[in-house]
């Protein structure tokens, strides 16, 4: 019993450490004061300012577009690659898997610098363009799509594909009608993971983006580095919206998963 109480208290303390800063920010997003700690009365002023700030709305839109683009490209690239690796000879598969793991375990700054070198000296025609930024994001997200899809391929009954061929389906048709539905959950979680990694990224973004282009990460970083920046109160509202959105998504995903399990 004592052990149980001790465990619960410990979990609660860690939870407190994780959520207190976020909750403080949420609470102070509902008051129109310049600094946290001073309560100027309840208001939605920060939210109203936020939605009228065209520059921030553009940054939010650009960030989402970039994440969606990176997510779609890496899901297609990663899924085809996973199927290919799964059916390659052992040696080729080992090489592919090893290289695929490099962006995962490498320090992000190393990936960022190496890409910056490539664009600055070899692929100069796309240096610091949207396309170099997109490539940077695809480099860091695709490995996770492969790791998400691979287990689904391993779980699949290999005879189903052969059966489809025997019944007269072309290889392409068999892939789309037999293999794809089986690995779809893996592709979806790979896509979600790619989108979150892209939304979250700062370092690779900073090294590959066009000078004037900003994502939420680079915008917040630049705002936070300047002391007493006038953008800080607005950030409280933006952060609150994103916190709430993520929590809703996590709950929804959890409910969907539970329903799937019950089936």
């Amino acid at each position: 019993m004592i052990k149980r109480i001790f465990s619960c208290v410990f979990l609660a303390l860690v939870m407190l450490f994780i959520y207190t800063p976020i909750l403080v920010l949420v609470v102070y997003s509902f008051t129109d004061s310049t600094v946290i700690g001073v309560w100027e009365g309840f208001s939605f002023q920060l939210y109203s300012d936020l939605f009228h700030d065209k520059a921030i709305m553009k940054i939010v839109g650009d960030t989402i577009l970039l994440a969606a683009g990176a997510g779609i490209i890496s899901t297609i690239l990663g899924t085809t690659a996973a199927i290919g690796i799964f059916h390659s000879k052992k040696r080729a598969a080992t090489v592919m898997n090893t290289v695929n793991n490099i962006p995962i375990i490498n320090a992000e700054i190393v990936t960022a610098l190496s890409l910056a070198l490539l664009f600055a000296f070899v692929l100069t025609f796309i240096n610091k363009r949207i396309i170099s930024l997109l490539i940077g994001h695809v480099v860091i997200t695709t490995p996770f799509v492969i790791l998400s899809v691979m287990p689904k391929l391993k779980q699949m009954d290999p005879n189903v594909y052969e059966a489809a061929l025997d019944l007269g389906a072309s290889p392409t048709k068999a892939l789309f009608t037999v293999v794809l539905p089986e690995i779809l959950p893996g592709m979806l979680s790979g896509f979600m993971l790619s989108v979150t990694l892209s939304l979250d990224d700062y370092i690779v973004t900073a090294f590959t983006k066009p000078e004037t282009f900003n994502t939420i990460s680079t915008y917040v970083y630049n705002a936070v580095k300047v002391p007493a920046n006038s953008a800080l109160p607005g950030l409280r509202a933006l952060s609150t919206l994103i916190f709430v959105l993520i929590i809703i998504i996590v709950i929804l995903m959890n409910v969907v998963k539970k329903k799937e399990v019950r089936k």
Partner: peptide, 19 residues
């Protein structure tokens, strides 16, 4: 415990800084 992982990390750092 791991939900914060999906919230933009620069934003979380800003929250921590304000705190």
């Amino acid at each position: 415990f791991i939900t914060p992982m999906w919230i933009n990390f620069v934003m979380r750092l800003n929250a921590l800084k304000e705190f």
